[in-house]
Design a protein around this nucleic acid. Sequence first.
RNA 1: GGGCGGUUAGCUCAGCGGUAGAGCACUACGUUGACAUCGUAGUGGCCACUGGUUCGAUCCCAGUACCGCCCACCA
Length: 1013
Amino acid sequence: MAMEKNFTPAEAEARISALWILQKVGAAGANKKPGRPAFSVMIPPPNVTGSLHMGHAFNNTLQDILVRWHRMQGDDTLWQVGTDHAGIATQMVVERELALTQQPTRREMGREAFLAKVWEWKEQSGGTIINQLKRLGASCDWDREAFTMSGNFPDAVTKVFVDMYNKGLIYRGKRLVNWDPHFETAISDLEVENTEVAGHMWHFKYRLAGGESYEYIEKDETGAVTLREMRDYISIATTRPETMLGDGAVAVHPSDTRYAPIIGKMVHLPLCDRLIPIITDEYPDPTFGSGAVKITGAHDFNDYAVAKRANLPCYRLLDTRAAMRADGAPYEVAVARARAIAAGAPTSEAEVDALNLVPEKYRGLDRLEARAQVVADITAAGLAVTVLVKEIDEETGSEHLRLEPVVEAKKIMQPFGDRSKVVIEPMLTDQWFVDTSKIVGPALEAVRTGATRIMPESGEKTYFHWLENIEPWCISRQLWWGHQIPVWYGPKIAAIGFAEIGARVPFCAASEKEAEKAALDYYSAFYGSDVNIRFTEFKAGPEPTQRDLEIGRPRRTANLPIDTTEGAFIEIYRDPDVLDTWFSSGLWPIGTLGWPEQTPELQTYFPTSTLITGSDIIFFWVARMMMMQLAVLDQTLPLEKRVPFKDVYLHGLVRDAKGKKMSKSLGNVVDPLDAINEFGADALRFTNAAMASMGGVLKYDPARIAGYRNFGTKLWNACRFAEMNGVWDGHQTQTGAPKASQTANLWIMGEAAKTLTEVNGALAAYRFDTAADALYKFVWGRVCDWYVEFAKPLFDGPHAAETRQTMAWVLDQCMILLHPFTPFITEELWATTGARTTLLVHQDWPTYGPALIDAASDAEMAWVTTLIDEVRSARAQVHVPVGLKIDIVATTLTPQARTAWARNEALIRRLARIETLTEGPAPKGSITLAAPGATFAIPLAGLIDIAEEKSRLTKTLDKLSKEIAGLNGRLTNPNFAASAPEEVVEEARTNLGARQDEAAKLRAALARLAEIG
RNA sequence: GGGCGGUUAGCUCAGCGGUAGAGCACUACGUUGACAUCGUAGUGGCCACUGGUUCGAUCCCAGUACCGCCCACCA
């Protein structure tokens, strides 16, 4: 049956993919050979509700190339596949879906029902991306598909949390964190995107208490006084006027002489009936603004640090949706209590947090509304730095002047949630943190010592830079979809029968049962062994122990009574928060291998060999995997046994052809499935490999994919030609190279060997582009362009049999070597040609080496191809029709050249379209070309334009003399001979000789032309 | 502000201490025993700029300019 003219990806890929899956070709250890090492790769788990985009296609292509390459080599190969539950992202998708289908909201249906919905959604859409990966040709072990919320994963996550908690690596605390008002959860620093936006800066006057005033003196650099005036206020600047309601102080730099007279004095906080002190701190920059900074501890990271240093109260002004708080006691009550606290009344963190110091008129307002209102009110109170503006009444036409607050337009960096895209608020809340400073050491050491290698090197620098400046990692999220934090809380016993107000005892345990046990241990120490524990639901709102903590109420009792009568229960409840997705992702390599059980898979495949991932998640994922696993695995093991992976390959982000980020709104998204449908998965894969130079941005150009689709077609047709000529008839797949004697056959085998070496070297160095390039050049540039053409005459000659054998072998090599890159078309070709005993996917990767390279054949074929090139070039330049066969005269011919000609005459004559060769002097009116060891004349009297030939020769001579001049210049420089390595000098000399020889011949030809012309 | 990277053909990018390569695009010719998703031959580059090291620099070093990315709390 004759082969089709083209490979049909749509039909063949589906069929082959099904076959691979059915035969479990990607199963762990498939095709493994004795004595070979393990090779394991963990897929970066895509979001379970996600779908394949170009980044995935790229990333997974590289993984598959490596995995197939190792599997063919007989390594014990595992490519672990799976998906991530992706907390925020998934919850967002499901909530959006609920809204779209007019179902009850998350809060309306409650936690349990909502989680059921998410699981439902996961079951329904969770397979999408996995199926898309199959279309790409990914050869994962599909039977081992993992999910971060299934199987042993939740247990592993819990165990790690408990272990880290017990080691003091995880702690809970009230800290200023990044708060996402849309999702109403804390997020980590990494989930915040800082973007420059147009903002404004306002200037307010905070009046000194008691009507005091001072002399305000400004000086320039030379110390000359530039301004001197009496002031009864201090001027502050802010981009967030609404937060002034929570100010705890005004800070100035200790060296700032302008404010020296008023340090320690109190100022009136506008709109607030409160006095706050002027304090000093290193933070304010005297050269910026007025040099005085309002300190709002609860709503700004810098201010928070200042407030901590100065022991200032941090008054929270915003609710979880970032509107002005409307909870708690009336403003009058709150402010009275705040004054008392300022005056030194004892208080607690919990009480300060409960105080709502937002005046009634602002309560419940959105941030921006509140901002406008505050500015208006301060302006009305005459406390804004203002400017006079002229205003025209449109009705009466009368003009009047109006005071307007000075508003400076200013670019400000504003934080946005990377998922929600809303403005993030610093918020003072209780959260769980990983004390990263305690676990960063081994992660740094592992890379420093080379136990883990990060490529490219710049990625290593980024890694170090981040880890060396690491901040605590906020791991709790106020979400529902995720791993719930394994901590239960109960009342803290202050004295028998009493619980301490605002305090709780945490019981961190791997299960409810163990939590109960821990609680029993704690409470029985006070009440004996007959205490009863009851699990209750966490109730949103203030802590139960705060219910008596009314504002302003004298704190007579520090404790609350606990009912410990017989039969009563002590209630404990589980922390409602879930863990950051990346906490569980951080355990991906060990978790998927069955940890904490010591499974055989863990023994065999851990540490994993290579992680291939985008450079954008080096912090999110790579660094955290390093830190967590090194902290969690048996510390007696050496670092090399604990690192999650030996090599990390970081690649750039995928962009469109112009380098723009792909986005739906820009309409420049290249959907990998579209590309696969149009060009085939192989074409997309080869494009991915060819683009994969280290670092930088990856620009997708569909034209490039089309080009590599053509490459597949090219190979297909070379095989079709071979098949038509029966090269595989009776052919068994050869492990060794065939015996051959014909130069072209020997040469092409050597080329295959060179290509193998190059591909092996390139892949070992993760240079997928170099490997792809080598294969492209070999298959198209050597096999198709030359060898197939040589084979045509050879098939009719005495070497027909060995040529058929060689061609079968060479094309087999093309399929094998290309298979990791373009698995579908090669598998199809493999099945279509020859008698095969195994699928190509499990064919052995060749091991032949330089022994296959025959230097004499190489040199001879170089001579042949050069000669053919020159004849073709000359013919084209003087416009000899391609169809016309010409005669050629050898005017000089060394014995070696004569042999080379004789042995390859059929090839040369066919490809250069030469009728006959004679020896003798150059006939009149011929063009001349010079090959090493030979000069040829092509008699073309009457066919060519003498002038054209002259100009051709002159042009060539010009080029030559330039080269000669350069070489001469070098060789005549005495320093060159003295300093340059021997072989470089020798090479230059040889080159010079050859060029001069060539030039001499051409000059002679030119002279001859001059005679006739 | 800190860090990292880039600047090579019209475009997208390799490369390397010995005066430059690929693919695409472009031009001319072409149905030559597989392939027009093709073939043959071409056009096209002071390798950003300025210094330095060197016998020799596109390559190494320093600086400049421009571009990009990451991180960052200037109210």
